[in-house]
Simulated assay, not measured.
Amino acid sequence: MDISIDDLSASDVVALLEEHLAELRAVTPPESVHALDLDALRRPEVTFWTARDHGVLLGCGAVRRLDAHHGEIKSMRTSSAAQRRGVAAALLARMLSDSARAGLRRISLETGTEEFFAPARALYEKFGFSRCPPFGEYQEDPNSAFMTKLLTPLV
């Protein structure tokens, strides 16, 4: 599996992100969907990674820098064909190590509280994330679970 920073220009990446947004909108009330669209993911404060196997897209994820030392995980998604193959864990590990190297000291995230999001919450807990109050511009929302993790500085 090759994990690298991506510019979101490939059609398979665009299709995976469109599928991601459509599915989130189908399982979450509109006011509780906090996923970023393509334009927002292309902003300078966002780093976006893809995982591929011999050119086949397996998954993606992003970190949006909130300030000099705090980032937020966005758009974690594994393709349907690659689920339960360790893609999300490999992507998350890479995103966390690259973020620590870039000077981030904390990574937070918002995910859903519905059963659909249980595997995501379990993955984040496995990686040491713990529940936290809303951060950044988020407000309390019964459909949102907020989690955070301190990062170990890497050089």
Results as ranks from 00 to 15, higher is better:
G55K: 08
L109P: 04
M95F: 05
R101C: 05
L104C: 00
A102Y: 04
R85E: 02
S75A: 12
I73P: 05
A93M: 03
L36G: 03
L91T: 06
G55D: 09
T50Y: 09
S108L: 00
A81K: 10
A68V: 13
A51E: 09
F117T: 09
M95E: 13
L92Y: 14
F127W: 11
L109I: 05
R106A: 01
E110C: 09
R84V: 02
F146T: 13
P134H: 13
L123W: 02
R84C: 08
Y138C: 04
Q139T: 06
S144I: 15
P153G: 02
L36V: 00
R105D: 04
A100C: 07
E114H: 04
A93Q: 07
E72M: 01
S80I: 11
A81Q: 12
K126N: 08
F127Q: 14
I107A: 02
S99V: 03
T113L: 06
A82L: 11
D39F: 14
S144W: 12
P134S: 08
H54N: 12
F146H: 03
S97L: 01
A102E: 04
W49Y: 13
V56E: 15
S32L: 15
R94L: 03
D53C: 02
A62F: 03
R106Q: 07
A88P: 08
R52Q: 10
A122E: 10
L66Y: 03
T47Q: 08
L38H: 11
R84L: 02
T111M: 06
H34I: 03
K126A: 15
R65Y: 09
P153F: 01
D67M: 06
P134I: 03
R101S: 02
E72D: 12
R77A: 13
G136N: 08
R43N: 00
Q83M: 09
A145L: 11
K74C: 07
F48T: 10
A68S: 09
E115D: 12
L123D: 11
P142S: 07
V46Y: 15
D37K: 03
Q139E: 13
T47R: 14
H34F: 15
A68W: 13
V33E: 02
E137H: 10
R65N: 00
M95K: 01
V87G: 07
V87D: 14
A51N: 09
P119H: 07
L150S: 06
Y138Q: 01
R94N: 05
T111H: 09
L109R: 11
V33C: 09
F129K: 12
L92N: 07
S108D: 06
F135W: 05
M95R: 00
C60K: 01
R131H: 03
A100E: 08
E140K: 06
G103Y: 02
A88D: 10
E45Y: 14
